[in-house]
Computed example of a mutant assay.
Amino acid sequence: MNISQSGQFLAFNPGIKPADGGLPGLDVLKDVISSINLFGIIAVVGALAVSALVWAWGHHSGGHQAEANGKKGTVVAAGCALLLGAANGIVSFFSAMGTQVN
């Protein structure tokens, strides 16, 4: 059991940390993941455009169901764009949380 300087008990630390370059092909895997992220962002841009068009068409034609679906699609696409764009920062933030001990 680990005890900090303030006398509080800390969780057990097995001492394992991510090693950069530990496996062959890591650069290729990073390129593949980056490409998948790019394709996802491009698809979200298309989904956002289509959803906004459906929203506008439903609003101007009196189609309340189309308008509601366009709104939902726009919000979902915007949320996906936010998550795809921030994915690297989110993972970096939460992976560093375990290493900060006061």
Rank of each mutant, 00 (worst) to 15 (best):
L48T: 05
I3K: 03
N102H: 08
W55D: 12
G40R: 02
A68D: 13
N13Y: 00
W57N: 15
G22K: 04
F93L: 14
V101Y: 13
I33Q: 07
I3E: 09
N102A: 11
A68T: 11
A43H: 04
W57G: 15
S34K: 08
L83A: 14
G7P: 02
I41C: 13
G46V: 03
G85N: 01
T74K: 06
K30V: 13
H64M: 11
V76Q: 14
A81L: 13
L10E: 15
K17C: 12
Q5P: 13
H59S: 12
P18D: 07
G73N: 07
S35V: 06
Q8L: 12
A81N: 04
K71S: 12
L29R: 05
A66F: 10
A68H: 08
V32H: 02
F93K: 15
K30E: 13
T74D: 03
N2G: 08
W57D: 13
Q65I: 14
Q8K: 12
V91C: 05
A66N: 06
A56W: 01
L23P: 00
I41A: 14
F12P: 09
Q65C: 11
D27F: 07
G7A: 03
G21I: 03
Q100L: 09
L29F: 10
V76H: 07
A81D: 06
N69M: 06
V101H: 11
V91E: 05
I41L: 15
V101L: 07
S35C: 09
G25Y: 00
V32D: 05
A49C: 08
H60F: 15
C80T: 02
A56F: 02
N102G: 12
L82N: 03
H59G: 10
N102S: 14
G40W: 07
I16Y: 01
L48D: 03
H60Q: 15
S34Y: 06
A47D: 08
V32P: 02
A86I: 01
E67R: 02
V28C: 04
V75L: 11
F12V: 14
S92T: 11
Q65K: 09
D20G: 10
L38M: 15
A81E: 04
N13L: 01
G63L: 03
L53Q: 05
A86T: 06
A96V: 03
L26Q: 13
K17W: 08
G85I: 01
L82I: 03
F12G: 14
A49S: 08
G25D: 00
V54L: 12
V54H: 05
A47Y: 00
I16A: 01
Q100A: 10
I36K: 11
S6Q: 08
V32N: 03
L84W: 04
N13K: 02
S95Q: 06
G70T: 01
I42V: 14
G85H: 01
H60C: 13
I16L: 01
